[in-house]
């Protein structure tokens, strides 16, 4: 019964959105088919705004697009390790428009970007408003969508396809190199990428970027990792008591602990200390910044994986 009203409202909205957008964008546009249907992106892009700061930022930075605005990385989050994207971000020096996870539409509108790149989970309830501000490219639209897919999509939308393909080729070459250099190690080592949180034990998620990178080099998953890959949402959690039981068979562990406090609680934990991988000192620490990302983060993670195999 209310459908027609809603439909009319949406139409009005879209029309007004298009009219305001068209006055800003003079000149030719490039049409791409995306998760949100066909998106018309201006050929000349002077400013790109991101909403999340993970895969969207990585892709925009690595393609060399003019990143002018994005979220402020929460200073109190306690990131102890430097971000893989720190250098590229510093060069682009985007304006900090709002806090992580708290998109401010007005600040976004005031920045008047030519293009918005965001994650599917930022879209939530503000999809229509975003589309009214600027064309929107959505990355990580589904768990199956890899960063490579998104990189190619954004590349096609912004006329940087060649660069996108080059980045993927670079990554593949690095993967091949690691595979070759550590062939025996990789075959003989059972690994698991685990995350540690204070008082809540450990968790493994197959969809995380560092899990994907491990699989890319042909890593042998330990039990916890294998279990996570079998579940429908690619993830498994273990309580503090199960730390040893769950990761007993792992020869090497990639442990993500974001803050100094988290890492301290892990190293002081009696069960964590008994893990064979920890005793053999085959642990590489990372943080939640390698959960998700694009080419820059993937290359950084490859370095960590190399360390895990003794590099």
């Amino acid at each position: 019964m209310f459908r027609p009203i809603i439909g009319a409202a949406v139409t009005v909205l879209l029309v007004s959105g298009c009219s305001s957008a068209s006055t800003q964008q003079e000149g030719a546009t490039r049409a791409v088919d995306t998760f949100l249907g066909e998106v018309k992106v201006p050929e000349k892009i002077d400013s790109v705004v991101i909403l999340d700061g993970r895969r969207d930022q990585d892709i925009v930075l690595s393609l060399g697009l003019p990143l002018t605005g994005g979220p402020q990385q929460d200073p109190a989050a306690g990131y102890e390790l430097p971000s893989p994207m720190a250098e590229a971000r510093q060069a682009a020096a985007p304006e900090e428009l709002f806090l992580e996870n708290e998109v401010n539409l007005e600040a976004l509108a005031a920045a008047a970007p030519d293009l918005i790149v965001c994650h599917e989970d930022d879209l939530g309830e503000i999809r229509e408003q975003l589309q009214a501000i600027a064309p929107v490219l959505v990355v990580a639209a589904s768990p199956e969508q890899t960063w490579q897919d998104d990189l190619l999509m954004v590349g096609a939308a912004t006329g940087t396809s060649a660069k996108a393909e080059q980045l993927i080729a670079d990554y593949d070459a690095r993967v091949a190199e690691v595979k070759e250099n550590y062939a025996d190690e990789i075959a003989a080592t059972k690994v698991s990428p685990i995350s540690w949180s204070v008082g809540e034990g450990t968790g493994v998620r197959g969809a995380r970027l560092h899990s994907r990178v491990l699989l890319d080099v042909g890593a042998q998953p330990a039990d916890g990792f294998a279990k996570a890959l079998e579940t429908p949402d690619d993830s498994v959690r273990f309580s503090p008591e199960q730390t040893l039981e769950a990761h007993q068979d792992a020869d090497a562990l990639l442990v993500s602990a974001t803050s100094a406090e988290e890492w301290r609680s892990a190293t002081e934990d009696p069960l964590f200390g008994q893990l064979p991988a920890v005793r053999a000192e085959r642990v590489v620490r990372t943080d939640r910044l390698t959960f998700e990302g694009g080419p820059i983060t993937a290359m950084h993670t490859l370095g960590l994986v190399e360390q895990l195999y003794g590099g």
Binding site: N101, E102, G199, P240, S259
Partner: peptide, 22 residues
Amino acid sequence: LLLDSASLDVYRFWTVGSLAGG
């Protein structure tokens, strides 16, 4: 929490009440 989203863990422990992890 909104002003400092990272404190979620600390907050949860203190306001929910938990004994996990010892």
